[in-house]
């Protein structure tokens, strides 16, 4: 009680110094933002390059293409970044990305389009998609966090399992003729901008705000930064980590829905090779692979960067056999730049 009184007096003193603090605040805030936004020049350079390569690049139509192309990837990047922040990995997100929509579509589509034939209500199908995401996330979370399996190996094995299920379930067939409700996410637009883009942007914003302002969000940073300190402070480490796994999987499932909607079909190969791009975007954007560091705005710039590169390469008419090599080289350069600037902390 005595202490409280002392504190109150000190607060009074402190607020009188408030002016000084506020000004310092602003400068500090800018400095903190500066780190992540230093990828912006790289993006600007890319945009200039794109405009030079093909005047079409700068048209709204093409830029919308770029955004849409990156939307599904973006969802998975949000998901993976959250997991990385708590100090764990999840490689199976690409499997969920493919399997969840497939199972949902299977239950909805007519038999002629490789569906099961039960032809459920599309909304039920959507629930199934989210449900599968939740279930896989819970499974991963419990086994990695509670049973202490090595996150990398375990989720890698899960990834192979899920992809295998995706292939074996329908014998490799594609599910067509999906009802409008199912493909809504990937095919519709609001105010001229694709729904998928809206949702991904909202996802990034929500995650960023959560991480910054919500207790559980800050706790995630603590868990990734110093696990013991977090525990000692009474943070419910296990609960939060499992929760993150579950949320991430659901986000990945939604991302898969987006891609399925765009292609108006769910193929047996959806999600293949996705995870490399996810990690590249996250790391370039400053999310540390050790955990506890990194911000959503950085990851977003990583996604934007990758999408731009893909688009520019398509527009350039580089001999198609060279696209991979160029793509890889650009990612390496981006990583190097990120390290130089100081955002990359892998």
């Amino acid at each position: 009680m005595q202490q409280r009184a002392m504190a109150d007096k000190a607060i009074e003193q402190a607020t009188s110094v408030g002016w000084r603090m506020n000004r310092r605040d602003i400068r500090f805030v800018i400095l903190k933002w500066f780190r992540e936004l230093t990828l912006i020049p790289v993006i600007v350079v890319l945009m200039i390059a794109g405009a030079i390569v093909n005047p079409v690049f700068f048209t709204p139509s093409n830029l919308i293409n770029v955004a849409e192309g990156g939307a599904a990837l973006g969802m998975v990047v949000v998901a993976e970044s959250l997991i990385l922040l708590t100090g764990k990995f999840d490689i199976s997100l690409q499997g969920t990305f493919g399997l969840a929509p497939l199972l949902g579509a299977w239950l909805i589509a007519p038999k002629a389009s490789q569906g099961l034939g039960t032809e459920w209500n599309p909304w039920l199908g959507l629930l199934v998609v989210l449900g599968v995401g939740l279930a896989v996330g819970a499974f991963n979370g419990i086994l990695v966090v509670k049973a202490n399996f090595n996150a990398f190996i375990f989720t890698l094995a899960m990834s192979i399992l899920l992809t295998g299920l995706q292939l074996g379930w329908l014998g490799g067939q594609t599910v067509y003729n999906l009802p409008q409700a199912f493909i809504y996410l990937g095919s519709e637009s609001w105010v001229g901008i694709p729904v998928a883009v809206w949702i991904t942007v909202v996802a990034f914003a929500a995650a960023a705000l959560f991480l910054r302002y919500h207790r559980a969000g800050r706790a995630m940073y603590a868990i990734g930064g110093n696990l013991e300190a977090a525990r000692a402070a009474g943070i419910q480490v296990d609960r939060i980590r499992i929760g993150v796994f579950m949320v991430a999987s659901v986000l990945a499932a939604v991302g898969g829905l987006m891609q399925a909607g765009r292609v108006t079909a769910v193929t047996a190969g959806q999600g293949s090779n996705l995870i490399f791009g996810v990690f590249a975007a996250a790391v370039i954007g400053g999310i540390s692979l050790d955990g506890g560091r990194g911000r959503m705005v950085g990851a977003l710039t990583g996604v934007v960067l990758l999408s731009l590169v893909t688009n520019i390469l398509t527009l350039t008419n580089i001999s198609s056999t060279w696209i991979d090599a160029v793509d890889g080289a650009i990612i390496l350069i981006a990583l190097g730049l990120a390290k130089l600037i100081g955002t990359e902390r892998a």
């Binding site: 800050r218 603590a222 930064g225 013991e228 300190a229």
Partner: peptide
Amino acid sequence: RSMMVPSLTVAENVFLNRRMAGEGALI
């Protein structure tokens, strides 16, 4: 051993996992 989270600010570490007067879940 240090029981602070290195990537968070000092202020955050001081109030790690604690509510201040009149605070909800948001910081």
